[in-house]
Structure formats: C-alpha cells, structure tokens
C-alpha cells in the first residue's frame, strides 16, 4: 500500500507543478492582451494623466513579475482581486456561479456515467447486432449535434409540446431540492446526451478489446455465461481507459457548458466568463481560467489514481 500512497503523492505533486505553470501562462497571456484594467475602467474618458493615476492606485505600474506573485499569493487563499466592472471581490462573483456549475455537472454525471457504462456493457454483449448499431448511431447523432441545438429540440419536445419541464432553468434561493432537480432537468439531460456517446463507446471498445484474451477464453471454457464473462472477467481489466474518458467528460461538463447555460439561462460560470471576456474584466477571466485548469488537472489526477487502484498488480505488489 505504501507504494500507492507515494505514487499518488507524486502525481499530486506533478499536478501542482502543472497548475503553477498554467498560472504563469494565464497571467502573462492576459498581460499580453492590448489594454489593461485601467483602460478598461476609464474607457472613453481615459487621458494620460488619469490613466497613470489609476494605474498607480491599482498597482499596475509595478513590474509584471511582482504583480504575478501578488496575484498568485491572493489566489492561493481564494482572493482573486476585485472585479473591474462592479468593484465586488471576484471570489464573491464566481463562487456562487461555480457552485451552480458544479451542481449541474454532478446532476448530469450521476445520470450519464452509470447510463453510459451500462449501455457500453450491453452493446459489448450484443456486439454486431441490430441493437449495437442502433445504440451507436443514436449516441453518435447526439454527440455530433451542437449542444444548443439539442437543447432547443428538448425544449420543443419536453417544455413547449408537453409542458413536462420548464424551459428556463433560473434558480432562486428558496427552492426545494426536488424543485431544483425539476428545474434543471433539461440542461442536465442535454449534457447527458452530449457526453454519453464518448463514454459508452470507450466502454464497449475497452471490453471488446479484451475478449480475445486467453483468460476470457478460459472463462468461456469454464462454462461462464456471456454476461458474466463480460462483467466479471473483462470489465475489471478494462477500467483504466474507461476511467480516463469519464474524467475527460466530467471536465467537459464543468468547463465546456457555456452554450447550454445560455440556452437555458442557467446562472453558471461559463456565462460569467464570456461576460468578463467581452468587458475586459481581467481579474475574473484569470480566476475562471485558473479554476478550469485546476478542474482539468484534478479530474485527470483522479483518473490516474482510479486507473492505478483498478490494477491488481499495483494494488497487490509481489
């Protein structure tokens, strides 16, 4: 077990280093953009004098390196500076919205991951049958359609025609959990449709890839029924690639959902980011980028750890 702990510790260390490198890239990429926060605030009313004064007030006249470490030190304790447009702390603006995004992602993931894996097992069992082909075509169709289009189709079918779910996913603080789930069902379903295909196809491929292994033949020659061959003998050895694809899709659920948020008017972090970019609200942009990067790194780290934990050779060393 000690091996695994040190292995995970090492991965965690690498993750932190990666995050540090990304923070450098984010900060200096934003730095390289034309204009700065002072110009963004003053806009048309900018003169040489008041720009200089504002820069001094905001500390923008200091060298970039120093500002970077200043920003980094703040980011470590959750202080990303203040928004240029509203003057509120950035953490207050994105905090609540990030929680909303996480909620929607979790909602979609709880449905999509088991659904995709089970569907993957079933199509692996019924490979090359009509069911397999139909499932493949349907999931591929859903992944290839743009998510805003899927969203509108769902609104048309489930909100306009049948009135089962609300078309707008606006939230208020006094909603019950059940109402919350009902309200956000359509955006969650859209996301489910988008991510299922990828995970299902990887599950199917990873399982089928193993079916020619000698130990699968051995299981068959022991009289094991086909479903048990797949669930008990193939799946435990197929987890590593499946987990990796799941992690990538979870990351997408958090960082790539802006279109779905716009369609359903859901108050998530994607909209905030788009807003901040268009208004040159640099502190918010930097904070969002850093959070997204951290999400990606953390999920990939979790996938690595998951893959290690499903490998008996690493779990039970000689």
């Amino acid at each position: 077990m000690g091996d695994i702990v040190s292995l995970i510790g090492k991965r965690l260390g690498y993750g932190l280093i990666t995050l540090l490198v990304i923070s450098v890239i984010i900060f200096f990429m934003v730095e390289m953009l034309p204009g700065d926060a002072a110009e963004a605030i003053l806009q048309m009313g900018a003169t040489e004098e008041n720009l200089a004064a504002l820069r001094e007030e905001m500390g923008l006249d200091r060298p970039a390196i120093i500002r970077y470490f200043d920003w980094l030190a703040g980011a470590v304790v959750g202080d990303f500076g203040v928004s240029i447009t509203s003057g509120e702390p950035v953490s207050a603006i994105i905090g609540e919205r990030f929680v909303n995004t996480l909620f929607l992602a979790a909602y979609a993931a709880v449905i999509a991951v088991p659904f995709a894996v089970i569907l993957g097992i079933v199509v692996a069992l019924l490979r090359n049958t009509l069911f397999d082909r139909v499932a493949n075509v349907l999931t591929l169709t859903s992944i290839s359609s743009p998510e805003f289009f899927l969203g509108y189709v769902l609104i048309l079918l489930l909100a306009v025609r049948t009135d089962m779910f609300p078309s707008l996913a606006s939230l208020s603080a006094d909603m019950s959990f059940g109402e919350l789930l009902h309200r956000t069902f359509l955006p969650a379903l859209t996301l489910v449709l988008v991510v299922t295909a990828h995970m299902m196809r990887m599950t199917r491929a990873a399982i089928i890839n193993l079916l020619s292994s000698p130990y699968i033949e051995m299981a068959r020659l022991k009289g094991t029924p086909p479903l048990k061959v797949i669930v008990r003998h193939a799946l435990p050895n197929a987890w590593a690639p499946i987990i990796n694809v799941i992690a990538l899709n979870l990351a997408y659920l958090i960082t790539g959902v802006v279109l779905v948020e716009v369609v359903f008017v859901y108050p998530g972090i994607g909209q905030t980011l788009v807003d901040a970019v268009s208004k040159q609200n640099f502190p918010v942009v930097q904070a969002c980028c850093l959070i997204f990067a951290a999400t990606f790194i953390l999920l990939n780290l979790a996938a690595d750890v998951g893959a290690i934990l499903t490998n008996p050779r690493l779990r039970h060393p000689k």
């Binding site: 000698p214 051995m218 068959r220 022991k222 009289g223 003998h233």
Partner: peptide, 24 residues
C-alpha cells in the same frame, strides 16, 4: 454445451499466466 464446460469437460491452457484473470 456450455453446461458441460467446466463441469464435465475442463480445459488447461498453454500459458497459465495469461489464462488466469489478473483481476481476481
């Protein structure tokens, strides 16, 4: 046929290392 396998006719493969499932 499946009901015979393992119960009345058994099989020993060439490479035991490859024919035992590594996960169990």
């Amino acid at each position: 046929r499946r009901a015979l396998r393992g119960a009345r006719i058994a099989y020993v493969a060439q490479s035991a290392a490859a024919s035992f499932n590594p996960a169990h």
